[in-house]
């Protein structure tokens, strides 16, 4: 993520670091890195201990077929949510980064609501929005969005679409923050130069700003994807924890803990970590290449 914000400038240096400054940097990194690594090591250790007790028991601990469904839905829904989040974050991020207009700070604050709200509240609010709104007293003939959708054979609540809506609601807020930070880093003079030689604002954006911000946008997409992966509260409330329908990996973990299957829960958690690492690294590799090509063209 750090790489993404620095854009075309290469800020890393080849000078050695030493003395108290180096120690400060090193110790900080070591401390936090150790915390994360130990978390994972403890999980692995816990499962291995159980495996040592009874190897076959661990294999039977999980309904693997059901878990595969959950993995598929998780991967697909996170990808959809992340792409949608990026598609909405790019224009909004640019708007917030470049324009000053009346009510901007209020809008800015509103866009942060999904970040600060407790997850369960987001889920509950989505549930109310889709099932009890618009209120009957408005006399529009329908009493809810889902009620209206049911006329065309659709429904959001308790379906896979609800998983996406819940993930998108939160992931988009994070993506917008990140995309805006990326645009903020890009000197707006480069667009102005393009515009003085006759490019429209749109042209300047697509030809000058966008090529410089691929990495930042990709990082925002990755962040959105990761947020969607960890999303739990809103999904539990809005989409439900229905096996074979709306069960994603975070739900699986919850269901396994509910039945005291701690080993199962830990195994799924490790699976999520692996899935996240693979996805993030893949995106990273692709965008490093892509951005490099674009920038040196």
């Amino acid at each position: 993520m750090r790489d993404s914000i620095r854009n075309s400038k290469n800020n890393s240096s080849n000078f050695g670091i030493s003395g108290w400054f180096g120690a400060w940097l090193g110790i900080s990194l070591f401390f936090y890195l150790a915390l994360i690594v130990l978390l994972i090591v403890a999980d692995v250790w816990y499962v291995l201990a159980a495996y040592g007790d009874s190897p076959s028991g661990v294999a039977e601990m999980l309904d693997w077929e059901n878990l595969w469904d959950s993995v598929k839905l998780t991967f697909l829904s996170c990808t959809v949510s992340a792409i949608l989040a990026v598609l909405i974050a790019v224009p909004i991020g640019y708007l917030l980064s470049r324009y000053r207009f009346f009510g901007r700070s209020v809008i800015d604050a509103i866009l942060d609501i999904p970040v600060v709200l407790p997850p369960l509240v987001i889920g509950l609010s989505l549930l109310i929005l889709f099932n009890n709104f618009p209120p009957k007293i408005l006399g529009w003939g329908v009493d809810s969005i889902d009620g209206y959708l049911s006329h065309i054979g659709m429904r959001i609540t308790n379906t896979k679409l609800a998983v996406i809506v819940a993930q998108f609601t939160v992931a988009a807020a994070f993506a917008i923050r990140m995309v805006k930070a990326t645009f903020d880093q890009i000197d707006s003079r480069s667009e102005q130069v393009a515009m003085t030689v006759g490019a429209s604002r749109g042209r300047a954006f697509f030809d000058v700003v966008l090529p410089q911000s691929y990495r930042g946008i990709a990082a925002a997409g990755t962040l959105a994807w990761a947020r969607a992966l960890g999303e739990f509260g809103p999904i539990l409330v809005f989409a439900g924890a229905t096996k074979g329908r709306t069960e994603v990996l975070s739900t699986s973990v919850y269901l396994e803990i509910s039945t005291g299957n701690i080993n199962g829960a830990v195994i799924i958690s490790l699976l999520m970590i692996a899935l996240a690492m693979i996805t993030i690294l893949t995106v990273r590799v692709f965008t490093e290449k892509g951005a490099g090509y674009d920038l040196h063209r």
Partner: peptide, 12 residues
């Protein structure tokens, strides 16, 4: 992704 996700969904 949407197709793979929703092809077996029945919307109530």
């Amino acid at each position: 992704c949407l197709f793979l996700m929703l092809n077996d969904e029945n919307f109530g």
